[in-house]
């Protein structure tokens, strides 16, 4: 038997890189909230406490074509999770752009990426496997549009320092938004224990 047992090892190889979904999804949001705080802290520590003089004008003239979805748009838990996952993944992407002008040291940048990747992967493994509703697709699309405008802005400004300052301010806003979303879901989760009220 030449074929004996050859499939199993391949299957095992596959399993090795499969994201093991043994994550405790019930505690996902609590972990995510803690990790998001760490992201914010890291971002804050790397950002100037004041906007550099030469960038002030740029900050005021900066406006985004697209906005993040409102909290009302992502009121369902699954929808919010998709939105958060999209923010994390897109933030990872934007921070992989030419960031020599961003003045982050390599270790901090690596730690930032490692955190974003892990949170995004953990979230993915806890998302429902069923096809996503139109509403959820729309949420995802809105986040993508928002980050597309950030990307376009960076490109347009040729990844200069001021552009990065503005991007960091925007990403910080995203993390604060994530914090609010998680807070809302968690408080709603507690409400759900009590009979529904309108």
């Amino acid at each position: 038997m030449i074929t004996k047992g050859w499939l199993l090892p391949i299957a095992l190889t596959m399993v090795l890189i499969t994201e093991v979904s043994s994550q405790d999804c019930g505690q996902l949001l609590a972990r995510l909230r803690q990790a998001n705080k760490a992201n914010l802290e890291l971002l804050n520590s790397k950002m100037n406490s004041t906007i550099p003089q030469q960038c002030i004008e740029g900050v005021f003239s900066f406006s985004l074509k697209n906005k993040l979805p409102t909290n009302r748009d992502v009121s369902e838990e699954e929808n919010a999770k998709v939105a958060i996952q999209e923010v994390l993944q897109q933030t990872g992407h934007i921070f992989r752009q030419n960031c020599t002008e961003m003045l982050w040291d390599e270790d901090s940048l690596r730690a930032f990426h490692a955190g974003l990747d892990q949170q995004s992967e953990n979230l993915k493994s806890c998302l429902s496997a069923s096809p996503r509703s139109r509403r959820i697709q729309l949420t995802s699309l809105r986040v993508k549009r928002y980050f597309r405008s950030l990307n376009d802005f960076l490109k347009e400004k040729e990844y200069n320092r001021c552009a990065w300052e503005i991007i960091q301010i925007q990403v910080k806003q995203c993390f604060l938004w994530i914090e609010k979303l998680i807070q809302e879901i968690q408080s709603k989760g507690m409400d759900a224990q009590i009979p529904a009220h309108i």
């Binding site: 074929t3 499939l7 596959m14």
Partner: peptide, 10 residues
């Protein structure tokens, strides 16, 4: 008798 195996890969 080919038997397919599928999995994620980098």
């Amino acid at each position: 008798h080919p038997e397919e195996k599928t999995g994620p890969v980098f």
